[in-house]
């Protein structure tokens, strides 16, 4: 299947979805790890990612309403809860842990729904979702090493390797788009590994640019809708640079804020988002390191 690339010359089409390759790459890596060191959490991560992929594939094949993905992504939490691949202590950096045996079920569900949808919401430009995931996966691995969770850090390796491989084909000019199946799978595999490592808050800090984008979108629209249902926050100029529109009905997004200073090319905006992702990655790893030092 091919779809138009909205930020390129008219008639430019790109293959979509890359979700099957993303799921296959991640599953192959995690199952190889499982063969060497059997851990239920690795199987749970693969099954959770497969569930998110299935939700996204349904949306790829037939455009669903705005509520479909947030609600259906609860299915991605089911394998983790059913296998019991989680700890019931929620760690807050610098302050310690709280024991929440019942409430942690909600944390698992929230983690999968939020991570899946935030990565999906930032998949708007060539190379951004794949680049953000490569940076975030590497930062989560580093944070988990700092926290002494080497087993969970190893589980990040397939995320990083697969994201870099995807980025080579996804960067501008894209030859493949992840699609909803790929973006939701990327977010949920990250969330599942963060739960495995007990690094939920640190993982959220690392992913702050994507979370900021989702927050800006929701706070400006004040309801859950699909991007395609909202007015466009940007327009493409004849020289193919992007410019923010003044449309008050359009959502506020990270890209729209980055364009406040004037028009930019798509690769320049992507680089700005990846620099921001690297910044929050450093913030997350530094927070994990500071937390370890305080708790020692």
């Amino acid at each position: 299947m091919v779809v138009p690339d909205a930020h390129k010359a008219p008639g430019t089409t790109v293959a979509r979805p890359g979700g099957p390759a993303i799921l296959g790459g991640f599953a192959a890596g995690e199952l190889a790890l499982y063969a060497m060191h059997p851990a239920d959490a690795l199987l749970a991560a693969v099954l959770a990612t497969a569930a998110a992929f299935a939700v996204g594939l349904a949306d790829d094949l037939r455009a669903m309403g705005g509520w479909f993905k947030p609600v259906a992504l609860v299915a991605a939490a089911v394998p983790i809860l059913a296998i019991g691949a989680y700890d019931t202590d929620l760690a807050f950096p610098l302050f310690g842990e709280v024991h929440i045996p019942v409430l942690y079920v909600g944390v698992v569900v929230a983690m999968m729904v939020v991570m899946g949808n935030t990565v999906n919401s930032i998949d708007v430009l060539n190379g951004v979702a794949s680049g953000v995931m490569a940076i975030s996966g590497a930062a989560l691995a580093a944070a988990l090493v700092v926290m002494g969770r080497h087993d969970a850090a190893a589980a990040c390796a397939p995320i990083v390797g697969m994201s870099i491989a995807l980025w080579r084909h996804h960067r501008s000019p894209s030859r493949v788009f992840p699609g909803d199946s790929g973006a939701l799978a990327l977010g949920c595999m990250y969330g599942a590994v963060a739960i495995h490592g007990g690094a939920e808050v640190v993982a959220a800090i690392i992913m702050l640019p994507a979370i900021t984008n989702s927050f800006l979108f929701l706070s400006s629209m004040r309801r859950i809708i699909e991007h395609r249902e909202a007015a466009r926050p940007t327009r493409v100029l004849p020289d193919l640079r992007l410019e923010a529109t003044g449309d008050a009905r359009a959502p506020v997004t990270l890209v729209r804020l980055l364009l406040m200073g004037g028009p930019m090319t798509e690769p320049a905006i992507a680089r700005a988002i990846l620099r921001m992702s690297a910044f929050s990655a450093c913030l997350g790893v530094a927070t994990a390191a500071a937390s370890q030092a305080v708790m020692a």
Binding site: F95, G96, T212, L257, L258
Partner: peptide, 29 residues
């Protein structure tokens, strides 16, 4: 820096997350 305000938003979110954790651990826990 051209996008300083967007970075400020990210740092504000980080600070709120850390502060919220402090309240959860020290008050609710």
């Amino acid at each position: 820096m051209r996008h300083a305000r967007v970075y400020a938003m990210v740092v504000a979110m980080w600070a709120l997350m850390i502060a919220g954790g402090g309240i959860a651990v020290n008050v609710l826990g």
